[in-house]
Simulated scan of single mutants.
Amino acid sequence: MEKLISMDRIKTGKTGVAFGLIRSRESGRDVHILNAAMTKDSEILFPYLLGCEDRNSCVDVLIGENVGYGIWARFLPCIGNELELYYTKEARAQSHNMPVSESNYEIMYIDDEYVNEDGYFFIRKIAPDTIEYTVALTEDMESPSFEPLKIYSLKLN
Rank of each mutant, 00 (worst) to 15 (best):
K89R: 13
F46R: 02
G70M: 03
I107F: 12
Y105T: 03
R55I: 06
E65H: 14
R55F: 02
W72N: 06
E106W: 08
L45W: 08
L50C: 01
H96E: 13
C52M: 11
A93Q: 06
V61W: 00
G51I: 08
G80N: 04
R74W: 00
S95F: 15
G119R: 03
G80Q: 04
G51D: 03
N81Q: 06
W72V: 07
S57F: 10
I110L: 06
L76F: 04
G119F: 14
K89Y: 01
M108H: 02
F46K: 02
A73P: 03
G70I: 04
N66S: 11
G51F: 09
S103V: 13
R74Y: 00
N104F: 13
N104G: 04
R55G: 07
C52D: 11
D111E: 14
A93C: 10
I63D: 03
Y86C: 06
E102I: 11
R74K: 15
V61R: 00
D41Q: 11
D41T: 06
E53I: 11
F46L: 05
K89A: 09
V67P: 01
P77Y: 08
I44C: 04
S42W: 11
E43C: 02
L62W: 15
E84G: 10
I44N: 03
V100I: 15
I79F: 12
A93S: 14
S103G: 14
E84S: 14
P77F: 02
R92N: 14
N116T: 09
E65F: 01
V61F: 02
M98V: 05
G80A: 04
L45I: 11
M98G: 04
E53V: 09
A93F: 11
C78W: 09
P77H: 10
E117Q: 10
G64P: 04
Y69E: 04
E84Q: 14
S42T: 01
D111P: 05
Q94K: 15
A93L: 06
W72T: 08
V115Q: 00
S95W: 15
D54Y: 10
P47F: 00
I110Y: 05
A93R: 05
V67E: 07
D112F: 00
E113H: 03
E82I: 10
L62Q: 10
R55Q: 06
A91G: 07
L50T: 06
L50E: 07
L85V: 03
R92G: 02
L85A: 02
Y114R: 06
I79Y: 12
S57W: 06
L85E: 09
C58T: 11
E84A: 13
L62C: 00
D41Y: 13
E113A: 09
D112M: 00
R74H: 05
E113P: 03
I79D: 07
M98A: 08
N104K: 15
Y69R: 09
Y48L: 01
I63Y: 05
D54N: 15
E43H: 03
E65G: 14
I110F: 04
L50F: 01
Y69M: 01
Y69G: 00
S95Q: 12
N56D: 13
V59R: 05
D118T: 10
V115D: 00
W72A: 04
R92Y: 15
N104D: 14
E117F: 11
E106H: 13
G51S: 05
G80R: 06
E43V: 15
G51M: 08
A73S: 13
F75N: 04
V67F: 12
K89D: 05
D111N: 12
S95R: 13
E117P: 04
G64A: 04
C52W: 03
D54P: 07
R74N: 10
